[in-house]
Amino acid sequence: MLKRGDEWEDGGEPKEPSVFPPTPPIDRAAAALPSRPVELTATERDAIDRANDDARRRRLDAYAAMAPATGEYERPAEPKNSAMILLENVTKVYPGNVVALDDVSLQIDKGEWVFLVGQSGSGKSTLIKLLLKEIDVSRGNLIVGGRSLSKLRHSKVPQLRRNIGCVFQDFKLLPNRTVEQNVAYALEVQGQRRELIARKVPEIINLVGLSDKVARYPHELSGGQQQRVSIARAFVNHPPLLICDEPTGNLDPDTSIGIMQLLYRIQRTGTTVVMATHDREMVDKMRRRVVALEGGRIVRDDRRGGYVTEDPR
């Protein structure tokens, strides 16, 4: 009697010859590798270390150059009416009773640059989604640009978003549109005149340094280039507020610098920048305001903060 599974007991291997060449036995493959790790001479090791250090120093210098001038820290506390963003006891509970933000109060003034830091799951993206009214607060009051978002009618949400530029880790470009069309889309949704679009779009693409890529599709660009496109799109309206959720999360350290320099130039025009990030070097060297979240609560709010402590150095 043949029982279930019996046919696999002996000779379970398929009889047909494999289309793949036979793989060599593991021990022979291992024998092909050098038996010990390659030894570096002392001079070789020094050269590598020096190159790494140089690269790192260059990056740190680049970030430090974007730190505010001394004196800018000691600005007097702004009155409430200059707030770009105001959170009053904001709590966000996701379905399933997940508390992502817990009684958060925070004021961000016009023209400020704020880093949001904190471990994965601490609520940074939740805060950003609230600002864009992708989701609604569960309790408390959230005011953006002088308007209470809980009282904002659904028909007014597009208007809100046109006044907020946003840049994400995954770029969020429209895949079937060229660089030029992606940037133009942000103006088209507002019903801008064609002449104005034709004038502004090349200007802003030039600003982000992609003039030679206007007719390329997102999948034909590198990550850094795609992020430049998304920044161009975010800034083409000259919005008073720019929100970034890990804008350099997918980019290598050197590319990140270029992106940050772009955002820095945008902030210098008076735009408020709120940025969630995990980039320690960048936060430590730029010495901006740092709001640290932990388990949905603000655990630190430094005027010139570092990634983990106040005033690094």
Binding site: P158, R161, K172, V189
Partner: peptide, 12 residues
């Protein structure tokens, strides 16, 4: 996802 992005940049 495309619709999501359109709405995010302020499309009605």
């Amino acid at each position: 996802r495309e619709v999501e992005v359109m709405k995010l940049v302020g499309a009605t």
